[in-house]
Structure formats: structure tokens, C-alpha cells
Design a protein around this nucleic acid. Structure first.
Lengths: 182, 182
DNA sequence: ACTAACTCATACATTCCTGTTCGAGTAAAG
DNA sequence: CTTTACTCGAACAGGAATGTATGAGTTAGT
């Protein structure tokens, strides 16, 4: 089992470049024989599942060290900037997972991570600092969509990676602001 | 050539359900033999290119009948609501095109459609009604991303199709508003 | 030195999709 | 009626990817 970590890292890396990456390509990137790869994960789906779970677990550990108290707007700013790179690195892995994994599986794996954001949004709504005329689910979806969009812009060369964080923060705070706000 | 329209419609329909739909599946959906399909489009890429061009051409004709004068915010509202269904119907076709078509091709086909939105955003910025602290490219990307996100939410059953238009309008107008606006 | 776990490359069977070829059927237009 | 355009199914070759089997090499622990 001493190659597990290398395999998961390679899976992350390869699928981030190309969601259709082959088992052979992943094995090569991990510095491992293709057969050995099947020794660890007996199918492509199982590999992708494990890689996604790994990425989300790492993300969760980063975010749980984050202080989300105080003004929800400032907390959201911190959350967005911290989440951004995680999303960027794993966006293509997620695309692969959407094609390979059964229906609800992705949502299940995301639950912890998503709950963290959801609670912050709900708190902001209750404190009257985030708009409440739109459902929390939609606000969540907005955040997801914008992060994906930013990653696409970077991939297309129309956005510099270091600009994405601040732009996301500025856009999301405006989108979440109360309809008639100063 | 009397099946061209049926083929393009079937391509749209099939790829909207599954971006990996086979030539055989598309042919069957079009009520046409697989060989006949190749008679019209000599490769999968050519078919997808034609289907995308067709969809964008239709979209362009819808949008060019739209009045984009007056208050940019109201004009944007109209534009968003009108664009929304077009995007929803063709989102999966676009995903297929991203995998099958050469790099800049999609952007080329989008140019007319995108220019229309871009001009409106620029006018809004110059008139001081849209925020100018973020580049127009980013505002455009925001709109694209949110529409894709809405389509995903619908596909996942977490959003009703008839709610998407108003939510998109509300979210985008807030995101585009001046940072310190009433 | 011996064993157990882990690794490797090569090769194979299977499956699926693409794109092409063939020979023949149909339907409208002259 | 005959030509022309369009259609069809069946079958074939090629490539690519998945998953399996085999036999042998390497490393670590005892």
C-alpha cells in the first residue's frame, strides 16, 4: 500500500488536465504499473471515488481551521478565498466524477463541506446581512457556479489565477447583499 | 437533404440528455439510418459543429429582436430572461462541443451572441449603472457561469425551471450593481 | 536465508465506437 | 418510364480502453 498517496495525487493531477485521462496515463503519472493500479483500485469508478473523497477530506480539514464567526460578510470573504484554490484544483476531477459515479454519490461526499457554507449563509440571512428573498440553495449554487466559471476563465487564459480570489469575493458579496443596501 | 433539420434537432435533443450520445443513438432519434447520418456529416465533430452553429444562429435571431435600449438594468433583465431557456436547452450540447471541437471554435461561434451582451454591459458601465471595478470579461463570465449553474440545479431537481429566470435576473442585477448602491 | 507483500511488463479477451463499403430499395422530377 | 437523389441495413476494419492472467523481479521483515 505504499503507493496509495502517489496514486491519488496522480489521479488528481491527471484528471485536472484531462477528465478523460486513461488508467494507463494515471498509472504512468503515479510512477506505477497499470496492473499495480488495478491492484489498488479494482475499477476506474472506484479510483475516482477515492480520489474525490480524498480531495474533499483535505478541503474539509482546511476549512474547519477557518474562523467563520463575526460579520458574516467578512467570514464569507475568508471562506471564498480559502475555498477557491481547492475548487480550482479539483474542478476537473469533479467533472470526471459526474460521468463515472452513480447519481447521489457526489452530493453525499460533499455534504460536510457544503454544510459549512450553508450554515454561514443561513446565519447571514438571520442576522439580516444577506438577502433572504432567494433560497439558501440558490445562493449556494451561485457560489459553486461562480467558482467553476472562474476556473474556466483561467483555463481559457482570460483570467490570471491571482485575480480570481478577489473578484469572486467582490462578486459574491454583491450578489448576496440585501436588495436595497448601502 | 430533406432530413437535415430532423438530424440537427435530434442531435440537440440527444446531446442534451447525454453529451456522450453515440452517432447510432443520434441517427435513431432522428429516424434515420446511421449510414445516412454519415452521408450528411462525415464525422462526429462536423455534426456537433453544425448543431452548435444552428443553435447559436437561432439564439441570435431571438436576441436580435430584443429591445436593449433604455435603462441598462432593465435591458439586462430582459436579456437574461430571454437567453436563459436557450442556454438551458443547449448546455449539454456545449459540453459535448468542448470535448470534440478544436480550441477556439466554440468561442468563434459565440462571437455574435457574446458581443451583444458585452455591448450592453459596457454601456451600463459608461452610464455609471453597472460596477466598473471589475472587467467586462469577468461580468460576462459571471453571467455564463450562473446560467450553467442554474441548468445544473434544474437537472439535479433542486430548482424549478420556471423559477430560474427571475432568480438569475435578481442575482445578476445585484452582482452588477455599483459597490455602494441604493 | 526465507517468506510475504508488493511490484512490474507483456499479453490477452472483451467491448464499444467510429468511419467505410456494398448492394439494394424508394420516391420524386423530368 | 427513367433518371437522379436519397435512403436503408448489414457487415467490416480499425482503434482505444477496460479489466484479467501470468510469471517473474524486488523489498522488508523475521
Amino acid at each position: 500500500m505504499r503507493n496509495q498517496a502517489a496514486i491519488l495525487a496522480a489521479t488528481r493531477g491527471m484528471l485536472s488536465i484531462n477528465p478523460d485521462a486513461t488508467m494507463a496515463q494515471i498509472a504512468q503519472a503515479a510512477g506505477v504499473g497499470r496492473v499495480t493500479l488495478y491492484g489498488h483500485f479494482s475499477s476506474r469508478a472506484e479510483l475516482i471515488d477515492a480520489a474525490l473523497a480524498d480531495v474533499l477530506h483535505r478541503g474539509n480539514r482546511v476549512l474547519e481551521q477557518l474562523d467563520l464567526d463575526g460579520d458574516p460578510r467578512e467570514a464569507l470573504g475568508r471562506l471564498v478565498v480559502s475555498s477557491w484554490k481547492l475548487v480550482d484544483e479539483s474542478r476537473s476531477l469533479l467533472a470526471a466524477a459526474q460521468r463515472e459515479l452513480p447519481e447521489g454519490r457526489i452530493r453525499d461526499l460533499h455534504r460536510d463541506l457544503e454544510g459549512r457554507v450553508q450554515r454561514l449563509l443561513e446565519r447571514g440571512q438571520h442576522e439580516g446581512l444577506f438577502r433572504a428573498d432567494l433560497p439558501v440553495d440558490w445562493l449556494l449554487a451561485t457560489m459553486h457556479a461562480l467558482m467553476h466559471g472562474a476556473a474556466n476563465e483561467i483555463a481559457a487564459g482570460r483570467l490570471e489565477p491571482e485575480d480570481a480570489g478577489p473578484m469572486l469575493r467582490a462578486t459574491l458579496l454583491a450578489a448576496y447583499a440585501l436588495p436595497g443596501d448601502a
